[in-house]
Design a binder for these strands. Sequence first.
DNA 1: CCACCTATTTTGATTAGTCAAAATAAGTGT
DNA 2: ACACTTATTTTGACTAATCAAAATAGGTGG
Lengths: 220, 220
Amino acid sequence: MATVAVENYLKHVLLLSEGGEELVSMGDLAGALAVVPGTATAMVKALADEGLLEHQPRLGVRLTTRGRRIALNVLRKHRLVETFLVETLKMDWSKVHAEAEQLEHAVSDEVLDRLDALLGHPRQDPHGDPIPNRAGKIDSQVYATLATCATGRRLRIVRVTEQSEEFLRFAEDSGLRPGAELSVGERNLVSGLVTLTRTDGGKIALGVAAAGKILVEPRG
Amino acid sequence: MATVAVENYLKHVLLLSEGGEELVSMGDLAGALAVVPGTATAMVKALADEGLLEHQPRLGVRLTTRGRRIALNVLRKHRLVETFLVETLKMDWSKVHAEAEQLEHAVSDEVLDRLDALLGHPRQDPHGDPIPNRAGKIDSQVYATLATCATGRRLRIVRVTEQSEEFLRFAEDSGLRPGAELSVGERNLVSGLVTLTRTDGGKIALGVAAAGKILVEPRG
DNA sequence: CCACCTATTTTGATTAGTCAAAATAAGTGT
DNA sequence: ACACTTATTTTGACTAATCAAAATAGGTGG
């Protein structure tokens, strides 16, 4: 059975490869896992020996089919647990990521399936992140962000791709959660400022980096 | 923060001391944790240095106040999680012990409190084991067992003190779960056999060791 | 009192995961 | 082509938790 550390390495390789087939650099992986680069190299070598990922020295890593299967299962646990914490236990969506980081390694497949049923087989978690189904299939639709979308049009927030508690608390306080509707007033590339208008007329200013974390679709 | 191993050592010292103040022998502790005796000695020495338990060499160990506080919190998590798995997720009570062994180390105090509220602050888990409250207080009523109680009287099962899946499946199939009513027909100390009569008239034979795992109170 | 049995402790090794710091490989610009 | 920068890998050391097996300490029975 995969240890907690192994599950975390595989999960982060999956997240960093955006679901695609690109190589993930050792630096990015080490950064995501908060370990020094040498540690990541050592661990990656071991995981490659186990056949869970493919290591191209000095270039990066990519999941094997087996590794991907495990990573998707961990991600499914993470996101279903987050959904449970918000929907059933009424926890604040800014806190559930940290909780799920622990629980994702302790929840069995049977509990997972029962949670899934209890919640009505949700497709997204509270942040709008897609939940892989039991077969490991995951919606990977590409959305525009508040940093890249057309201005003036009516939009709906579909996803917030940032897990830090501070960011999410800010988003919550500003009404920027999945499902909320708004439009982009103006975007100043020089100052890096994006101005939003909520349906209630309220205006919010946002840095372009933060705006890039918020995915939207045209309302319709 | 206490590691998983530390939490397990403290929890098992608590369980083996029956809530009382008696010393727990190293052999019993090592057995409960499924480690060799030398491992338990080493770990106990470390925990004593941390001030979590008191080690009397060659005699045994006992929890300190700090160790007891942690152990009770772990036990509370274990039993509330079991209750959640049975009540909310409708899992079989014979399986929830193993699940809770994992989850008890991953559930935060905040999630714990919300589970407690969701379940309506239960006093016992599905096996009838008392759940410590948040302050660490735990019902420690002494009950008779099917091996020690008077024969002929009408009884109610209050608790089944054995966690193994096989035993619990047998108990379930025989209608021996907390709340069930029955009486002890006869008890043969020579053969070690206990005969039970259910309310529906059905008879069940049980070894005296198994009978000792089932706690009862006079119905009334 | 001595030999023996049993529980406990010690000692030496092992594994997983980690860090710090030195060594190396791969560009990049001049 | 050469010196530089930067990412990656290697090396050596450490911690937590464990096992196997040898050493030891208490009783217990004769």
